[in-house]
């Protein structure tokens, strides 16, 4: 099957990058438009609202700060797993990718506690536009985290068999998964101040 898609381990002579990399960047561009639409909705809703709560008054800033630091750390371990694999250090690669997955799960658990406390205080997506935006943006982001966990877990366990036969292609997959993961981190870097600090 893999023979059908060419230039997945070597750069395409026209684009100068592998098709895998071109593909993931185009996907991320479409993702940017998805989140862009929601950020746009946020601007319109907040701009037209007579009252808009300050994020820190209704949301847990210390917990979100901790989550920000966790996500930044997971981005570092992700890029370190790629670098370790590029250096052909398989043990270090596995360690860093495992750490990335664990940090992602920690992020989701903390997010779960946050949601739980919101529900306990009867704050639901239907409560008002603020919570509507809060749950939509953080929920969509959390789904992206979950997607990243699934892909990274696949690449850590069954997917890593590819390294034995096609090491270059596998390195490309780790790089693509990493690009996606840094994008998810990037979205949070903007979500955090917009929802929690303003």
């Amino acid at each position: 099957m893999s023979a059908l898609i060419r230039y997945i381990s070597k750069p395409h002579p026209v684009s100068g990058v592998t098709n895998a990399k071109l593909g993931i960047w185009c996907f991320l561009a479409s993702e940017l438009m998805l989140f862009g639409g929601l950020f746009s909705a946020y601007i319109v809703l907040r701009g037209s609202a007579s009252e808009w709560p300050h994020g820190s008054a209704v949301l847990n800033v210390p917990l979100a700060t901790l989550n920000t630091l966790i996500l930044i750390s997971s981005s570092v371990t992700m890029v370190m797993s790629w670098a370790s694999l590029a250096l052909k250090n398989l043990k270090k690669f596995r360690f860093h990718l495992s750490m990335t997955i664990l940090l992602s799960l920690a992020f989701l658990v903390i997010k779960g506690f946050e949601y739980h406390s919101k529900f306990e205080h009867h704050h639901f997506p239907s409560t008002d536009n603020f919570f509507g935006m809060y749950f939509t943006l953080t929920g969509l982001h959390a789904i992206h985290i979950l997607g990243g966990v699934i892909v990274n877990a696949y690449l850590l366990f069954p997917g890593s068999k590819l390294y034995e036969t096609e090491p270059e292609q596998f390195l490309g997959r780790i790089e693509a998964a990493g690009l996606y993961w840094h994008f998810v981190d990037l979205v949070w870097i903007f979500l955090f101040p917009v929802l929690y600090l303003l």
Binding site: P11, S15, G16, V17, K21, L22, W25, S75, V76, M78, V79, G178, L179, H182, F183, D185, L186, I189
Partner: peptide, 15 residues
């Protein structure tokens, strides 16, 4: 994040 983790500073022109 984009420049260093996503390697954009050394990425191909098409990207």
């Amino acid at each position: 994040v984009v420049a260093y983790f996503m390697h954009l500073i050394s990425e191909a022109k098409i990207i």
